[in-house]
Simulated scan of single mutants.
Amino acid sequence: MSTETASGGFALHTESMTGLHWLGVATAVVSGVIHLWLAVSFIGESLGLGIGFLVAGVGFLAGSAAVLFDYRRRAFYALGIPFTLGQIVIWLAVTPADEYLSPIAVTDKLAQVILVVVLVVLFRRAS
Rank of each mutant, 00 (worst) to 15 (best):
M1A: 13
M1F: 06
A6L: 10
G8Q: 05
G8A: 06
G9Q: 04
A11C: 04
H13P: 00
H13T: 00
E15R: 09
T18E: 01
H21A: 06
H21C: 10
V25P: 07
A26E: 01
V30I: 15
G32V: 06
H35S: 15
L36T: 10
V40L: 15
F42P: 02
F42W: 07
G44D: 11
L47D: 03
G48I: 03
L49P: 05
G50C: 03
G50A: 08
I51W: 10
I51H: 07
G52M: 08
G52Y: 15
F53C: 12
L54S: 09
V55G: 01
V55C: 03
G57T: 03
F60D: 00
A62Y: 12
G63C: 05
G63E: 00
G63A: 09
A65I: 07
L68R: 03
R72K: 14
F76H: 15
F76K: 00
Y77G: 08
G80S: 11
T84C: 04
T84E: 07
L85K: 01
I88F: 01
I88V: 12
I88H: 04
W91K: 07
T95R: 06
P96H: 07
A97C: 00
Y100P: 01
S102P: 04
I104E: 11
V106S: 15
T107L: 15
D108I: 02
K109M: 11
Q112G: 02
I114W: 05
L115A: 14
L115V: 02
V116G: 05
V121K: 09
V121S: 03
L122A: 13
L122I: 09
R124C: 09
R125Q: 14
R125W: 05
S127Y: 08
S127D: 14
